[in-house]
Simulated assay, not measured.
Amino acid sequence: MSRVLEVAGLAKSFGGIHAVSDVSFTLDAGELLALIGPNGAGKTTCFNMLMGQLKPNAGTIRLLGRDIAGMAPRRIWRLGVGRTFQITATFGSMSVRENVQMALLSHHNRLLSLFADAGRQYREEAMELLALVGMAEQAERACGVLAYGDLKRVELAVALANAPKLLLMDEPTAGMAPRERVGLMELTASIVKQRGISVLFTEHDMDVVFGHADRVLVLNRGRLLAEGTPAAVRDNPLVQETYLGSGAMFAGEAS
C-alpha cells in the first residue's frame, strides 16, 4: 500500500492546557483508521489540525509526502482532503443534486459562474456520486425534507466531490439508528476500498469502530495510549482501564 498520511510529533496547547502532545501515526491508501478516546482526549483538536482549522505548535503532517501543517483549510481541501461533520452541513433549501453540484463547482473553481448556469454544470458527475451513495432517486428532493440517515449519505457524496485522497469523518454515524449506522459504514468501507481513499474517523459507537476499522488509535489526555488492530485494542487492559475500568464501553455503552 502507498502511504497517504504521515503525522509525527503533533502537538497543540491552549495556554497551559496540552490538548495534543507528541502524537504520531500513519495511514495508507484504502485504509480505515479509527481515532477513539474519552471526551476531552484531543480527537477534535487532532482533526482540526489535519484540516487546517488549527495550526500545530509542533510536529509535521505530510499528505503524500507534502507537509500541510498550518496550511489554510481551502488549500488542504484542494490538495485532496475531504471532511464530514458530526452535524450534517448541507443547504436545506437546495436539492440533493444541487448540493453535490455546488461542491463540484468549488472543486473545479467555477463558483464565479454560479448564478449563470450552475444548474447545468457537472450535473452528470453529481448524479454519478449520488448513485454511488444510493441517493440518485432522491436527487431532486430538497435536503431540508430528508431523513437524517439520507442526509449523511448526501454529505458523503459532497465530501467525495473533490476526489479526496484522505477523508476525515467526525462521528459519521452520530444521531443515526443502529441499522443506518451499519449501512453507512459498509457503504463507506466499500467506496474507500474501491477508490483507494484513506479514512480517519472518530466514533463513539464501538460496534462501528470494531466492525469496520482496519486499525484503531486510542487517545487519552492528548497522548497516544494505544494503537493496533481492533482485536488488540479491544483486549488491551490499559485501554479498558482508561475508559471505564469495567470495559463496558466495548459492550456498546459509550457516551
Rank of each mutant, 00 (worst) to 15 (best):
V4A: 00
L5T: 03
A8Q: 14
A8F: 01
S24C: 07
L32K: 10
L35G: 08
N39I: 13
T45R: 05
T45N: 05
C46H: 00
M51A: 14
Q53Y: 15
L54I: 00
P56Q: 11
N57P: 00
A58M: 04
G59S: 06
G65Q: 03
R66M: 00
R66S: 05
D67W: 02
R74G: 00
I76E: 01
R78A: 14
G82M: 04
G82A: 04
G82R: 04
R83V: 03
T84V: 09
T84E: 10
I87F: 10
I87Y: 06
F91M: 13
M94F: 11
V96T: 12
V96Q: 08
N99E: 07
V100I: 13
A103R: 05
L104F: 05
L104W: 05
L112D: 09
L114N: 00
A118R: 15
A118N: 01
R123M: 04
M127H: 15
A131G: 15
G134K: 11
E140V: 08
C143P: 07
L146V: 13
Y148A: 13
G149K: 06
L156Q: 06
L160G: 08
L166R: 02
L167Y: 10
M169Q: 02
P172G: 10
G175D: 10
G175C: 11
A177R: 14
E180M: 06
L184S: 10
E186P: 04
V192D: 10
Q194C: 01
R195S: 01
L200E: 01
F201I: 07
V209Y: 12
R215Q: 13
L217P: 03
V218N: 05
V218A: 05
L219M: 12
N220T: 02
L244K: 01
M249H: 08
A251N: 08
